[in-house]
């Protein structure tokens, strides 16, 4: 029994490896865009322009209030019907769904961190005759980003987990190949899915370590209040 198990693993391993590429590409692209959206939305929500503030608020609430899987299906199936054009590729739909969803969540972290930088810092920067932009860039953001780091790490792990959803729109990631393999040999299902889980776990391990490191970094050299 052990030998058949090892045989299965040897058979399955290279096929799942093929899916690894898509999973990593989706993770990298969607995390870059998610952080970008988070900063844009987080800063826009503190803008002096009421319209901009309301609009970003709407975006954040809609994407935080509905499920990622619904958003993904909506972008993939409904957008082409609504506007009569395709998003071009399933890659774009997948990356956009994950990035918009987590961008909305993380924009709250960006906003919260910026707001929690002590007010005296802004006042001191104003007293030094800094412009609004200088204040943000040189004084507030360097302190705020440090507070965001641990949460950003946590969200990276969440994004890794949610990349598995792109298999549902036909992208050839790890789970996609796992599903195909199981369809070919149902009795090997447990081994295959366990191996898929192990693949995701191996991808998650460096992210977990990174998050712990970011936590330490954000605490270092900061006075305990």
């Amino acid at each position: 029994m052990i030998s058949t198990l090892i045989d299965t693993i040897i058979d399955v391993f290279p096929i799942l490896m093929k899916g690894m590429k898509i999973t990593i590409v989706v993770l990298v692209l969607s995390s870059i865009f998610a952080y970008l959206f988070a900063f844009i939305a987080g800063l826009c929500r503190m803008s002096q322009n009421v319209l901009l503030r309301k609009f970003t608020g709407f975006y954040v609430e809609v994407f935080r209030g509905t499920s990622l899987i619904v958003q993904l299906f909506w972008l993939y199936y409904a957008i082409p019907m609504l506007f009569g054009f395709d998003l071009g590729s399933d890659m774009l739909a997948g990356v956009l769904a994950i990035a918009l969803n987590y961008g909305a969540y993380m924009s709250e972290i960006v906003r919260g961190s910026i707001l929690s930088v002590a007010e005296g810092q802004t006042e001191a920067a104003t007293a030094l005759n800094m412009s609004r932009f200088q204040r943000m860039r040189l004084v507030i953001l360097p302190q705020a980003i440090r507070m965001m780091l641990p949460e950003f790490g946590n969200y990276l792990i969440l994004m890794l987990k949610s990349t598995s959803l792109v298999a549902l729109i036909g992208m050839t990631d790890i789970l996609y190949y796992g599903n195909i393999l199981r369809g070919g040999n149902i009795s090997q299902g447990p081994t295959i899915y366990l191996l898929v889980l192990v693949f995701y776990f191996i991808l998650a391990l460096p992210l977990i370590a990174l998050t712990k490191k970011l936590e330490k970094m954000s605490k270092k050299g900061v006075a305990v209040q």
């Binding site: 598995s164 899915y193 776990f201």
Partner: peptide, 13 residues
């Protein structure tokens, strides 16, 4: 740290 979707598939299939 592994996807709930895969866990669902594992339990169901």
């Amino acid at each position: 740290s592994t996807p709930p979707l895969v866990q669902l598939f594992f339990i169901f299939y």
